[in-house]
Write a protein that binds this DNA or RNA. Sequence first.
DNA 1: CTATGTGAAACTCTTCACAGCT
DNA 2: AGCTGTGAAGAGTTTCACATAG
Lengths: 259, 259
Amino acid sequence: MATGRTHRPATRSRGIPEATVARLPLYLRALTALSERSVPTVSSEELAAAAGVNSAKLRKDFSYLGSYGTRGVGYDVEYLVYQISRELGLTQDWPVVIVGIGNLGAALANYGGFASRGFRVAALIDADPAMAGKPVAGIPVQHSDNLEKIIQDNGVSIGVIATPAGAAQPVCDRLVAAGVTSILNFAPTVLTVPDGVDVRKVDLSIELQILAFHEQRKAGEDAHTDGTGPAAVTREEPTEAAASADQGPDGDVPAVMPA
Amino acid sequence: MATGRTHRPATRSRGIPEATVARLPLYLRALTALSERSVPTVSSEELAAAAGVNSAKLRKDFSYLGSYGTRGVGYDVEYLVYQISRELGLTQDWPVVIVGIGNLGAALANYGGFASRGFRVAALIDADPAMAGKPVAGIPVQHSDNLEKIIQDNGVSIGVIATPAGAAQPVCDRLVAAGVTSILNFAPTVLTVPDGVDVRKVDLSIELQILAFHEQRKAGEDAHTDGTGPAAVTREEPTEAAASADQGPDGDVPAVMPA
DNA sequence: CTATGTGAAACTCTTCACAGCT
DNA sequence: AGCTGTGAAGAGTTTCACATAG
Protein backbone atom coordinates (compact mmCIF):
# COMPACT_ATOMS: atom_id res chain seq x y z
CA MET A 1 0.00 0.00 0.00
CA ALA A 2 2.32 2.68 1.09
CA THR A 3 5.24 3.36 -1.05
CA GLY A 4 7.84 3.92 1.50
CA ARG A 5 8.26 0.82 3.48
CA THR A 6 10.67 1.50 6.18
CA HIS A 7 10.79 -0.91 9.00
CA ARG A 8 7.61 -1.11 10.82
CA PRO A 9 4.40 -1.00 8.98
CA ALA A 10 4.73 2.69 8.58
CA THR A 11 1.62 2.33 6.64
CA ARG A 12 -0.74 4.64 8.43
CA SER A 13 -0.64 8.12 9.66
CA ARG A 14 -0.17 9.97 6.48
CA GLY A 15 -3.33 8.45 5.88
CA ILE A 16 -6.31 7.72 7.90
CA PRO A 17 -8.83 7.95 5.08
CA GLU A 18 -11.13 10.90 5.33
CA ALA A 19 -14.12 8.59 5.29
CA THR A 20 -12.73 6.81 8.30
CA VAL A 21 -12.05 10.03 10.17
CA ALA A 22 -15.65 11.03 9.61
CA ARG A 23 -16.82 7.85 11.29
CA LEU A 24 -14.55 7.94 14.30
CA PRO A 25 -16.83 10.35 16.18
CA LEU A 26 -19.64 7.91 15.55
CA TYR A 27 -17.74 5.01 17.05
CA LEU A 28 -16.66 7.19 19.89
CA ARG A 29 -20.22 8.02 20.76
CA ALA A 30 -21.28 4.40 20.69
CA LEU A 31 -18.29 3.45 22.80
CA THR A 32 -18.98 6.19 25.30
CA ALA A 33 -22.48 4.85 25.73
CA LEU A 34 -21.10 1.36 26.37
CA SER A 35 -18.56 2.77 28.74
CA GLU A 36 -21.29 4.44 30.73
CA ARG A 37 -23.02 1.13 31.05
CA SER A 38 -19.73 -0.34 32.22
CA VAL A 39 -19.54 -2.78 29.35
CA PRO A 40 -15.92 -3.98 29.35
CA THR A 41 -15.52 -5.31 25.83
CA VAL A 42 -17.40 -5.23 22.60
CA SER A 43 -17.15 -7.11 19.32
CA SER A 44 -16.91 -5.42 15.97
CA GLU A 45 -20.34 -6.78 15.19
CA GLU A 46 -21.96 -5.24 18.26
CA LEU A 47 -20.20 -1.95 18.02
CA ALA A 48 -20.96 -1.69 14.34
CA ALA A 49 -24.64 -2.20 15.02
CA ALA A 50 -24.59 0.49 17.69
CA ALA A 51 -22.88 2.90 15.36
CA GLY A 52 -25.04 2.06 12.40
CA VAL A 53 -22.33 0.75 10.05
CA ASN A 54 -21.36 -2.75 9.03
CA SER A 55 -18.71 -4.64 10.89
CA ALA A 56 -16.27 -5.10 8.03
CA LYS A 57 -16.10 -1.37 7.58
CA LEU A 58 -15.61 -0.82 11.26
CA ARG A 59 -12.77 -3.31 11.45
CA LYS A 60 -11.15 -1.78 8.44
CA ASP A 61 -11.48 1.66 9.98
CA PHE A 62 -9.89 0.51 13.20
CA SER A 63 -7.10 -1.15 11.28
CA TYR A 64 -5.95 2.29 10.22
CA LEU A 65 -5.52 3.26 13.83
CA GLY A 66 -3.60 0.18 14.83
CA SER A 67 -4.35 -3.24 16.19
CA TYR A 68 -6.34 -2.37 19.22
CA GLY A 69 -8.53 -5.42 19.41
CA THR A 70 -8.02 -8.92 20.67
CA ARG A 71 -8.79 -11.75 18.32
CA GLY A 72 -11.40 -14.09 19.56
CA VAL A 73 -12.54 -11.50 22.07
CA GLY A 74 -13.22 -8.04 20.73
CA TYR A 75 -12.23 -4.55 21.75
CA ASP A 76 -11.65 -3.17 25.19
CA VAL A 77 -14.14 -0.35 25.46
CA GLU A 78 -12.16 1.99 27.67
CA TYR A 79 -8.99 1.51 25.72
CA LEU A 80 -10.67 2.16 22.44
CA VAL A 81 -12.39 5.27 23.76
CA TYR A 82 -9.00 6.56 24.70
CA GLN A 83 -7.33 5.69 21.44
CA ILE A 84 -10.02 7.21 19.29
CA SER A 85 -10.17 10.31 21.45
CA ARG A 86 -6.47 10.71 21.10
CA GLU A 87 -6.56 10.17 17.37
CA LEU A 88 -9.24 12.81 17.01
CA GLY A 89 -7.33 15.18 19.20
CA LEU A 90 -9.99 15.22 21.88
CA THR A 91 -7.62 14.57 24.71
CA GLN A 92 -6.72 18.18 24.51
CA ASP A 93 -8.80 21.23 25.14
CA TRP A 94 -10.18 23.07 22.16
CA PRO A 95 -11.44 26.53 22.90
CA VAL A 96 -13.94 27.62 20.26
CA VAL A 97 -15.73 30.86 19.60
CA ILE A 98 -19.19 31.11 18.14
CA VAL A 99 -19.83 34.19 16.06
CA GLY A 100 -23.39 35.24 15.42
CA ILE A 101 -25.64 34.64 18.38
CA GLY A 102 -29.04 34.44 16.75
CA ASN A 103 -31.32 31.47 17.07
CA LEU A 104 -28.77 29.09 15.73
CA GLY A 105 -25.83 30.53 17.58
CA ALA A 106 -27.75 30.27 20.83
CA ALA A 107 -28.68 26.69 20.02
CA LEU A 108 -25.05 25.89 19.44
CA ALA A 109 -23.98 27.59 22.64
CA ASN A 110 -26.45 25.46 24.52
CA TYR A 111 -25.57 22.27 22.75
CA GLY A 112 -24.19 19.83 25.23
CA GLY A 113 -22.35 17.74 22.68
CA PHE A 114 -19.56 20.25 22.52
CA ALA A 115 -18.49 20.42 26.10
CA SER A 116 -18.65 16.68 26.46
CA ARG A 117 -16.08 16.18 23.76
CA GLY A 118 -13.28 18.45 24.71
CA PHE A 119 -14.67 21.56 23.12
CA ARG A 120 -15.05 24.58 25.30
CA VAL A 121 -17.03 27.58 24.24
CA ALA A 122 -14.50 30.26 25.01
CA ALA A 123 -16.65 33.12 23.83
CA LEU A 124 -19.83 34.14 22.10
CA ILE A 125 -19.53 37.04 19.71
CA ASP A 126 -22.18 39.13 18.03
CA ALA A 127 -22.20 42.34 16.05
CA ASP A 128 -25.32 43.65 17.73
CA PRO A 129 -24.36 46.04 20.56
CA ALA A 130 -27.67 45.27 22.23
CA MET A 131 -26.53 41.71 22.75
CA ALA A 132 -23.30 42.66 24.47
CA GLY A 133 -23.16 41.47 28.04
CA LYS A 134 -26.33 39.48 27.72
CA PRO A 135 -25.71 35.92 28.87
CA VAL A 136 -26.51 33.03 26.58
CA ALA A 137 -26.00 29.56 27.92
CA GLY A 138 -24.37 31.23 30.88
CA ILE A 139 -21.77 32.97 28.81
CA PRO A 140 -21.92 36.73 28.27
CA VAL A 141 -22.03 37.75 24.64
CA GLN A 142 -19.20 39.98 23.57
CA HIS A 143 -19.21 42.56 20.85
CA SER A 144 -17.44 41.73 17.64
CA ASP A 145 -15.17 44.74 17.98
CA ASN A 146 -13.17 42.59 20.35
CA LEU A 147 -13.02 39.56 18.11
CA GLU A 148 -9.29 39.63 17.48
CA LYS A 149 -8.42 40.10 21.11
CA ILE A 150 -10.75 37.33 22.19
CA ILE A 151 -9.21 34.90 19.73
CA GLN A 152 -5.72 35.72 20.81
CA ASP A 153 -6.31 35.83 24.53
CA ASN A 154 -7.96 32.45 24.46
CA GLY A 155 -5.70 30.77 21.95
CA VAL A 156 -8.68 29.90 19.82
CA SER A 157 -8.00 27.96 16.64
CA ILE A 158 -11.53 26.80 15.84
CA GLY A 159 -14.30 29.22 15.01
CA VAL A 160 -17.97 28.60 14.38
CA ILE A 161 -19.81 30.99 12.10
CA ALA A 162 -23.55 31.24 12.64
CA THR A 163 -24.11 34.69 11.20
CA PRO A 164 -26.39 35.69 8.33
CA ALA A 165 -24.92 34.84 4.95
CA GLY A 166 -23.79 38.35 4.19
CA ALA A 167 -21.65 38.64 7.29
CA ALA A 168 -19.98 35.26 6.97
CA GLN A 169 -17.06 36.09 4.71
CA PRO A 170 -16.00 39.26 6.57
CA VAL A 171 -16.22 37.41 9.85
CA CYS A 172 -14.28 34.54 8.37
CA ASP A 173 -11.54 36.88 7.20
CA ARG A 174 -11.20 38.41 10.61
CA LEU A 175 -11.14 35.03 12.32
CA VAL A 176 -8.43 33.81 10.01
CA ALA A 177 -6.41 36.98 10.35
CA ALA A 178 -6.59 36.59 14.11
CA GLY A 179 -5.23 33.08 13.96
CA VAL A 180 -8.17 30.71 13.55
CA THR A 181 -7.30 27.81 11.26
CA SER A 182 -10.46 25.72 11.35
CA ILE A 183 -13.93 27.00 10.65
CA LEU A 184 -17.32 25.40 10.94
CA ASN A 185 -19.67 27.39 8.76
CA PHE A 186 -23.44 27.39 9.15
CA ALA A 187 -24.06 30.33 6.86
CA PRO A 188 -25.21 29.42 3.36
CA THR A 189 -22.21 30.91 1.64
CA VAL A 190 -19.03 29.71 0.06
CA LEU A 191 -16.19 30.89 2.22
CA THR A 192 -12.87 31.70 0.66
CA VAL A 193 -9.93 31.02 2.91
CA PRO A 194 -6.18 30.89 2.48
CA ASP A 195 -4.29 27.65 2.25
CA GLY A 196 -3.94 25.84 5.48
CA VAL A 197 -7.30 26.88 6.79
CA ASP A 198 -9.90 24.18 7.04
CA VAL A 199 -13.57 24.84 6.45
CA ARG A 200 -16.44 22.51 7.03
CA LYS A 201 -19.93 23.50 6.25
CA VAL A 202 -23.32 22.50 7.53
CA ASP A 203 -26.15 23.53 5.33
CA LEU A 204 -29.60 22.72 6.54
CA SER A 205 -31.42 23.40 3.35
CA ILE A 206 -29.06 21.23 1.33
CA GLU A 207 -29.82 18.26 3.51
CA LEU A 208 -33.51 18.76 2.99
CA GLN A 209 -33.07 19.05 -0.74
CA ILE A 210 -31.26 15.76 -0.86
CA LEU A 211 -34.10 14.17 1.05
CA ALA A 212 -36.59 15.72 -1.34
CA PHE A 213 -34.76 14.18 -4.25
CA HIS A 214 -35.11 10.70 -2.81
CA GLU A 215 -38.61 11.36 -1.64
CA GLN A 216 -39.59 12.28 -5.14
CA ARG A 217 -38.13 9.04 -6.38
CA LYS A 218 -40.17 7.06 -3.93
CA ALA A 219 -43.35 8.85 -4.90
CA GLY A 220 -42.61 7.20 -8.16
CA GLU A 221 -45.35 6.95 -10.63
CA ASP A 222 -47.89 9.40 -9.37
CA ALA A 223 -47.62 13.09 -9.02
CA HIS A 224 -44.98 14.45 -11.24
CA THR A 225 -45.86 18.03 -11.14
CA ASP A 226 -44.56 19.04 -14.40
CA GLY A 227 -43.52 15.97 -15.98
CA THR A 228 -41.19 17.16 -18.55
CA GLY A 229 -39.02 14.25 -17.86
CA PRO A 230 -40.82 11.01 -17.35
CA ALA A 231 -37.59 9.58 -16.21
CA ALA A 232 -37.94 5.93 -15.96
CA VAL A 233 -38.93 5.89 -12.39
CA THR A 234 -37.22 3.30 -10.41
CA ARG A 235 -37.05 3.04 -6.77
CA GLU A 236 -33.44 3.29 -5.99
CA GLU A 237 -32.67 1.68 -2.71
CA PRO A 238 -32.79 4.17 -0.02
CA THR A 239 -29.54 4.08 1.19
CA GLU A 240 -27.52 4.48 4.02
CA ALA A 241 -26.07 7.63 3.07
CA ALA A 242 -23.07 7.83 5.19
CA ALA A 243 -23.16 9.98 8.18
CA SER A 244 -22.18 13.38 7.14
CA ALA A 245 -18.82 13.17 5.58
CA ASP A 246 -18.75 14.68 2.18
CA GLN A 247 -19.82 18.21 2.03
CA GLY A 248 -16.72 19.98 1.17
CA PRO A 249 -16.17 23.61 1.72
CA ASP A 250 -18.73 25.28 -0.34
CA GLY A 251 -22.13 26.63 -0.43
CA ASP A 252 -23.02 29.93 -1.76
CA VAL A 253 -25.40 32.62 -2.17
CA PRO A 254 -28.18 33.61 0.04
CA ALA A 255 -31.50 34.13 -1.50
CA VAL A 256 -32.79 34.18 1.97
CA MET A 257 -30.79 34.49 5.04
CA PRO A 258 -31.20 32.91 8.35
CA ALA A 259 -32.35 35.18 11.08
CA MET B 1 -26.81 5.92 7.67
CA ALA B 2 -30.18 4.65 7.72
CA THR B 3 -30.48 1.32 9.18
CA GLY B 4 -28.67 -1.35 7.54
CA ARG B 5 -30.56 -3.91 5.75
CA THR B 6 -29.49 -5.89 2.89
CA HIS B 7 -28.82 -4.46 -0.42
CA ARG B 8 -30.96 -5.25 -3.25
CA PRO B 9 -30.18 -5.19 -6.92
CA ALA B 10 -31.88 -1.88 -7.08
CA THR B 11 -32.93 -1.29 -10.57
CA ARG B 12 -30.49 1.14 -12.00
CA SER B 13 -32.58 3.44 -13.96
CA ARG B 14 -31.64 6.94 -14.49
CA GLY B 15 -29.19 6.63 -11.69
CA ILE B 16 -27.76 9.94 -10.76
CA PRO B 17 -24.82 9.19 -8.48
CA GLU B 18 -25.38 10.07 -4.86
CA ALA B 19 -22.32 12.29 -4.89
CA THR B 20 -23.82 14.26 -7.72
CA VAL B 21 -27.18 14.61 -6.03
CA ALA B 22 -25.42 16.03 -3.00
CA ARG B 23 -23.90 18.76 -5.14
CA LEU B 24 -27.00 19.77 -7.06
CA PRO B 25 -28.26 22.02 -4.26
CA LEU B 26 -24.92 23.73 -4.37
CA TYR B 27 -25.13 24.45 -8.05
CA LEU B 28 -28.69 25.54 -7.62
CA ARG B 29 -27.76 28.11 -5.08
CA ALA B 30 -24.98 29.52 -7.23
CA LEU B 31 -27.30 29.60 -10.21
CA THR B 32 -30.03 31.32 -8.24
CA ALA B 33 -27.60 34.05 -7.35
CA LEU B 34 -26.63 34.49 -10.98
CA SER B 35 -30.27 34.52 -11.92
CA GLU B 36 -30.95 37.31 -9.46
CA ARG B 37 -28.20 39.30 -11.06
CA SER B 38 -29.80 38.60 -14.40
CA VAL B 39 -26.78 36.80 -15.76
CA PRO B 40 -28.04 34.95 -18.84
CA THR B 41 -25.41 32.27 -19.32
CA VAL B 42 -22.51 30.86 -17.42
CA SER B 43 -19.60 28.59 -18.29
CA SER B 44 -18.76 25.46 -16.38
CA GLU B 45 -15.63 27.20 -15.22
CA GLU B 46 -17.43 30.19 -13.76
CA LEU B 47 -20.22 28.21 -12.20
CA ALA B 48 -17.79 25.75 -10.73
CA ALA B 49 -15.86 28.56 -9.10
CA ALA B 50 -19.05 30.00 -7.63
CA ALA B 51 -20.05 26.64 -6.26
CA GLY B 52 -16.61 25.78 -5.00
CA VAL B 53 -15.95 22.69 -7.08
CA ASN B 54 -13.83 22.09 -10.14
CA SER B 55 -15.26 22.39 -13.60
CA ALA B 56 -14.65 18.84 -14.77
CA LYS B 57 -16.68 17.55 -11.89
CA LEU B 58 -19.44 19.99 -12.56
CA ARG B 59 -19.66 19.04 -16.23
CA LYS B 60 -19.70 15.38 -15.34
CA ASP B 61 -22.45 16.02 -12.84
CA PHE B 62 -24.55 17.87 -15.38
CA SER B 63 -23.98 15.14 -17.92
CA TYR B 64 -26.05 12.85 -15.70
CA LEU B 65 -28.98 15.21 -15.99
CA GLY B 66 -28.76 15.55 -19.73
CA SER B 67 -27.11 17.81 -22.24
CA TYR B 68 -28.31 21.14 -21.04
CA GLY B 69 -25.37 23.22 -22.17
CA THR B 70 -24.31 24.69 -25.47
CA ARG B 71 -20.80 23.92 -26.66
CA GLY B 72 -18.73 26.95 -27.17
CA VAL B 73 -21.12 29.00 -25.06
CA GLY B 74 -22.00 27.59 -21.68
CA TYR B 75 -25.23 27.02 -19.79
CA ASP B 76 -28.41 29.03 -19.82
CA VAL B 77 -28.90 30.05 -16.21
CA GLU B 78 -32.69 30.08 -16.06
CA TYR B 79 -32.99 26.82 -17.86
CA LEU B 80 -30.52 25.10 -15.60
CA VAL B 81 -32.21 26.47 -12.49
CA TYR B 82 -35.40 24.92 -13.68
CA GLN B 83 -33.88 21.60 -14.64
CA ILE B 84 -32.03 21.16 -11.39
CA SER B 85 -35.04 22.25 -9.35
CA ARG B 86 -37.14 19.72 -11.13
CA GLU B 87 -34.58 17.00 -10.70
CA LEU B 88 -34.41 17.68 -6.99
CA GLY B 89 -38.16 17.72 -6.73
CA LEU B 90 -38.27 21.35 -5.70
CA THR B 91 -40.93 22.30 -8.19
CA GLN B 92 -43.40 20.76 -5.83
CA ASP B 93 -44.42 21.73 -2.34
CA TRP B 94 -42.92 19.78 0.54
CA PRO B 95 -44.68 20.24 3.84
CA VAL B 96 -42.35 19.40 6.72
CA VAL B 97 -42.86 19.15 10.44
CA ILE B 98 -40.23 20.00 13.00
CA VAL B 99 -40.39 17.99 16.19
CA GLY B 100 -38.66 19.33 19.26
CA ILE B 101 -38.89 23.07 19.55
CA GLY B 102 -35.95 23.85 21.75
CA ASN B 103 -33.19 26.19 20.76
CA LEU B 104 -32.34 24.25 17.68
CA GLY B 105 -35.92 23.58 16.64
CA ALA B 106 -36.67 27.27 16.92
CA ALA B 107 -33.61 28.11 14.88
CA LEU B 108 -34.76 25.72 12.20
CA ALA B 109 -38.27 27.13 12.22
CA ASN B 110 -36.79 30.55 11.64
CA TYR B 111 -34.38 29.42 8.99
CA GLY B 112 -35.26 31.09 5.75
CA GLY B 113 -33.48 28.60 3.57
CA PHE B 114 -36.36 26.20 3.84
CA ALA B 115 -39.17 28.28 2.53
CA SER B 116 -37.08 29.54 -0.32
CA ARG B 117 -36.62 26.05 -1.67
CA GLY B 118 -40.09 24.66 -1.74
CA PHE B 119 -40.14 23.52 1.84
CA ARG B 120 -43.01 24.68 3.98
CA VAL B 121 -43.04 24.28 7.72
CA ALA B 122 -46.44 22.72 8.15
CA ALA B 123 -46.20 22.38 11.88
CA LEU B 124 -44.02 22.66 14.94
CA ILE B 125 -44.43 19.92 17.49
CA ASP B 126 -43.18 19.65 21.04
CA ALA B 127 -43.80 17.33 23.95
CA ASP B 128 -43.87 20.11 26.51
CA PRO B 129 -47.48 21.13 27.26
CA ALA B 130 -46.22 24.55 28.26
CA MET B 131 -45.09 25.17 24.70
CA ALA B 132 -48.44 24.38 23.18
CA GLY B 133 -49.99 27.33 21.46
CA LYS B 134 -46.91 29.43 21.86
CA PRO B 135 -45.91 30.84 18.48
CA VAL B 136 -42.40 30.28 17.15
CA ALA B 137 -41.48 31.89 13.88
CA GLY B 138 -45.12 32.82 13.61
CA ILE B 139 -46.31 29.24 13.85
CA PRO B 140 -48.07 27.98 16.96
CA VAL B 141 -46.41 24.98 18.56
CA GLN B 142 -48.63 21.95 18.83
CA HIS B 143 -48.45 19.21 21.40
CA SER B 144 -47.03 15.91 20.32
CA ASP B 145 -50.21 14.09 21.24
CA ASN B 146 -51.50 15.27 17.92
CA LEU B 147 -48.47 14.22 15.92
CA GLU B 148 -50.17 11.53 13.88
CA LYS B 149 -53.12 13.69 13.00
CA ILE B 150 -50.90 16.59 11.99
CA ILE B 151 -48.84 14.38 9.71
CA GLN B 152 -51.88 12.95 8.04
CA ASP B 153 -53.88 16.14 7.73
CA ASN B 154 -50.99 17.89 6.09
CA GLY B 155 -49.74 15.08 3.95
CA VAL B 156 -46.30 15.40 5.46
CA SER B 157 -43.65 13.04 4.20
CA ILE B 158 -40.56 14.78 5.55
CA GLY B 159 -39.92 15.18 9.23
CA VAL B 160 -37.18 17.02 11.08
CA ILE B 161 -36.17 15.74 14.49
CA ALA B 162 -34.60 18.28 16.81
CA THR B 163 -35.40 16.63 20.10
CA PRO B 164 -33.01 15.54 22.83
CA ALA B 165 -31.27 12.26 22.00
CA GLY B 166 -33.46 10.15 24.20
CA ALA B 167 -36.68 11.20 22.52
CA ALA B 168 -35.45 10.81 18.96
CA GLN B 169 -36.16 7.13 18.34
CA PRO B 170 -39.68 7.16 19.78
CA VAL B 171 -40.49 10.29 17.81
CA CYS B 172 -38.99 8.73 14.72
CA ASP B 173 -41.12 5.61 15.16
CA ARG B 174 -44.26 7.68 15.46
CA LEU B 175 -43.39 9.79 12.44
CA VAL B 176 -42.77 6.72 10.35
CA ALA B 177 -45.92 4.99 11.55
CA ALA B 178 -47.87 8.09 10.60
CA GLY B 179 -46.49 8.07 7.09
CA VAL B 180 -43.28 10.06 7.08
CA THR B 181 -40.70 8.51 4.77
CA SER B 182 -37.80 10.96 4.99
CA ILE B 183 -36.21 12.16 8.18
CA LEU B 184 -33.60 14.77 8.90
CA ASN B 185 -32.16 13.97 12.28
CA PHE B 186 -30.36 16.50 14.45
CA ALA B 187 -30.36 14.39 17.56
CA PRO B 188 -27.06 12.66 18.31
CA THR B 189 -28.44 9.16 17.97
CA VAL B 190 -28.50 6.46 15.38
CA LEU B 191 -32.06 6.03 14.26
CA THR B 192 -33.41 2.69 13.23
CA VAL B 193 -36.02 2.82 10.52
CA PRO B 194 -37.75 0.32 8.27
CA ASP B 195 -36.82 -0.18 4.68
CA GLY B 196 -37.94 2.54 2.39
CA VAL B 197 -37.44 5.29 4.94
CA ASP B 198 -34.59 7.65 4.32
CA VAL B 199 -32.63 9.22 7.14
CA ARG B 200 -30.06 11.94 6.91
CA LYS B 201 -28.32 13.19 9.92
CA VAL B 202 -26.63 16.38 10.91
CA ASP B 203 -24.43 16.13 13.91
CA LEU B 204 -22.85 19.30 15.12
CA SER B 205 -20.35 17.74 17.42
CA ILE B 206 -19.17 15.32 14.75
CA GLU B 207 -18.28 18.18 12.46
CA LEU B 208 -16.27 19.79 15.18
CA GLN B 209 -14.48 16.56 15.93
CA ILE B 210 -13.46 16.21 12.34
CA LEU B 211 -12.07 19.72 12.42
CA ALA B 212 -10.20 18.92 15.59
CA PHE B 213 -8.60 15.95 13.92
CA HIS B 214 -7.23 18.10 11.13
CA GLU B 215 -6.34 20.88 13.48
CA GLN B 216 -4.29 18.52 15.55
CA ARG B 217 -2.52 17.33 12.47
CA LYS B 218 -1.61 20.84 11.49
CA ALA B 219 -0.17 21.52 14.88
CA GLY B 220 1.96 18.45 14.54
CA GLU B 221 3.37 19.42 11.22
CA ASP B 222 4.17 22.85 12.47
CA ALA B 223 6.76 21.40 14.70
CA HIS B 224 4.96 22.59 17.70
CA THR B 225 4.45 19.62 19.84
CA ASP B 226 6.81 19.51 22.63
CA GLY B 227 9.34 17.09 22.54
CA THR B 228 9.00 13.52 22.72
CA GLY B 229 10.76 13.44 19.47
CA PRO B 230 10.98 15.18 16.21
CA ALA B 231 7.93 17.09 15.27
CA ALA B 232 4.97 15.19 14.13
CA VAL B 233 2.51 14.04 16.58
CA THR B 234 0.82 12.31 13.78
CA ARG B 235 1.93 8.81 13.88
CA GLU B 236 3.95 8.85 10.77
CA GLU B 237 6.96 8.18 12.81
CA PRO B 238 7.10 6.39 16.07
CA THR B 239 7.24 9.67 17.82
CA GLU B 240 4.73 9.29 20.54
CA ALA B 241 3.05 6.29 19.17
CA ALA B 242 5.76 4.28 20.74
CA ALA B 243 5.06 5.79 24.07
CA SER B 244 1.46 4.80 23.95
CA ALA B 245 2.28 1.22 23.35
CA ASP B 246 0.34 0.36 20.35
CA GLN B 247 1.42 -3.12 19.94
CA GLY B 248 3.09 -5.15 22.50
CA PRO B 249 2.05 -8.71 22.97
CA ASP B 250 -0.38 -7.66 25.49
CA GLY B 251 0.50 -4.12 25.87
CA ASP B 252 -2.94 -2.73 25.52
CA VAL B 253 -2.94 -1.68 29.05
CA PRO B 254 -2.70 2.04 29.55
CA ALA B 255 -6.06 2.80 30.96
CA VAL B 256 -5.38 6.44 31.08
CA MET B 257 -2.31 8.24 30.26
CA PRO B 258 -0.98 11.72 30.13
CA ALA B 259 -0.82 13.35 26.80
C1' DC C 1 -11.80 28.68 -31.91
C1' DT C 2 -14.41 27.80 -27.61
C1' DA C 3 -16.40 25.21 -24.05
C1' DT C 4 -19.29 21.10 -23.54
C1' DG C 5 -19.83 16.15 -22.96
C1' DT C 6 -17.67 11.87 -22.10
C1' DG C 7 -14.81 7.58 -22.49
C1' DA C 8 -10.99 6.01 -19.92
C1' DA C 9 -7.56 6.32 -16.29
C1' DA C 10 -6.73 7.16 -11.52
C1' DC C 11 -8.25 7.24 -6.95
C1' DT C 12 -10.97 6.40 -2.95
C1' DC C 13 -14.05 3.75 -0.30
C1' DT C 14 -16.59 -0.53 0.68
C1' DT C 15 -17.22 -5.31 0.89
C1' DC C 16 -15.58 -9.96 0.74
C1' DA C 17 -13.51 -13.76 2.59
C1' DC C 18 -10.11 -15.94 5.01
C1' DA C 19 -5.50 -16.24 7.34
C1' DG C 20 -3.93 -15.88 11.81
C1' DC C 21 -4.22 -14.95 16.92
C1' DT C 22 -6.21 -16.05 21.29
C1' DA D 1 -13.94 -22.28 18.29
C1' DG D 2 -14.44 -17.15 17.81
C1' DC D 3 -13.27 -12.71 16.20
C1' DT D 4 -9.87 -9.53 14.57
C1' DG D 5 -6.94 -7.74 10.89
C1' DT D 6 -6.22 -7.33 6.06
C1' DG D 7 -5.07 -8.43 1.13
C1' DA D 8 -7.82 -8.40 -2.84
C1' DA D 9 -11.90 -7.68 -5.48
C1' DG D 10 -15.54 -4.61 -6.37
C1' DA D 11 -18.17 -0.27 -6.47
C1' DG D 12 -18.28 4.47 -6.62
C1' DT D 13 -16.07 9.06 -7.50
C1' DT D 14 -12.89 12.25 -9.43
C1' DT D 15 -9.76 13.76 -12.82
C1' DC D 16 -7.85 13.76 -17.39
C1' DA D 17 -7.81 14.90 -21.97
C1' DC D 18 -9.82 15.25 -26.28
C1' DA D 19 -13.39 14.41 -29.86
C1' DT D 20 -17.25 17.00 -31.01
C1' DA D 21 -20.86 20.47 -31.58
C1' DG D 22 -21.79 25.28 -32.19
